[in-house]
Design a binder for these strands. Structure first.
Lengths: 158, 158
DNA sequence: TTTAGATGGTTGCAAATGAGACTATCTTAA
DNA sequence: TTAAGATAGTCTCATTTGCAACCATCTAAA
């Protein structure tokens, strides 16, 4: 019989861990600010790059389906957390950016999330945290989840 | 302004990686055997412990909602991959186990999944794989995702 | 210029899933 | 023995999300 234990199976562990970590963080953006995950991703992307960008770009770099992003954008606009302006160069797309309130929420939320992350990783030493990030990076790279410098330049239009 | 990059944020990376790995594996159990994730978890749990166990037990150790497991069990029974027998000691619960066909599927699927997992981790050296598993284990333990020996003995009735 | 195909974004639909009500059964204590 | 509460499993409902069709617009090539 094949020796196999689901509970020791890497992919399963990864899923379970990701779900658990998400749940831990959602108490911040969900319960506290009424944002769901896609909405949080939009806010985070816009907050990080402080210039405006398209919905497509957000979908791309967060690996979230464009319809999901579209719905999140609609919800955030009705709450006046983001705004969009037409792009004169290409009237199919909109430039999205945080409103003043959206930016305030972003600035308030980020430290909380970083603190949570630190809490979760506090079981590791500084060196271990570094190693973990490095190993994650290697796996991501081999799955082409992160843009190599070459790929990044090819897609820099985003 | 807070320095923050969603794409470098641990929890986000974890989610993205887990989703990608799941997608890579689903081509095996999904496309090839028509199993969805909950169904696969039931098969895997029953296959690993080759004695019968309850649906509740599967829900518990795979961290899947009991209604999701219930549906998976129903689907697998209609496909004759698992069977259930009444438990005379407690007539609320059923003992589940793989049928001959279910076991055959299990034995066929496991090597494929392990091969996929190896493929995904082939970007790491043997030592790195070991380190990665160890670090995952530490984080899981601190989130109490794995049973400590004490907790395990308390819940061994499952 | 016209036409074919690509792309940004929205929306309807269907599948998946968690929450929680519900039934049946078990356990414990009065 | 009876009653109160816990537990296993099923089912209905609401939410979430991916898919795919769709519209508007852009691009490229005939």
């Amino acid at each position: 019989m094949a020796k196999f234990d689901l509970v020791k199976f890497g992919p399963f562990r990864l899923n379970r861990l990701a779900a658990e970590v998400s749940a831990a963080l959602s108490s911040e953006y969900q319960a506290r600010y009424g944002l769901d995950i896609p909405e949080w991703r939009v806010i985070a992307t816009l907050g990080f790059r402080n210039d405006a960008c398209s919905a497509q770009y957000i979908a791309h770099c967060t690996r979230t389906h464009k319809s999901t992003i579209s719905r999140a954008v609609t919800a955030l606009m009705t709450r006046d957390l983001i705004e969009r302006v037409e792009n004169a160069d290409d009237r199919r797309e909109f430039r999205l950016r945080l409103t003043r309130q959206g930016h305030a929420l972003y600035e308030e939320l980020i430290p909380r999330l970083l603190r949570k992350e630190r809490e979760i990783l506090s079981c590791l030493s500084a060196q271990e945290r570094k190693d973990f990030a490095g190993l994650l990076g290697k796996i991501e790279a081999s799955l082409e989840l992160v843009q190599t410098s070459k790929a990044a330049s090819e897609t820099e239009a985003y």
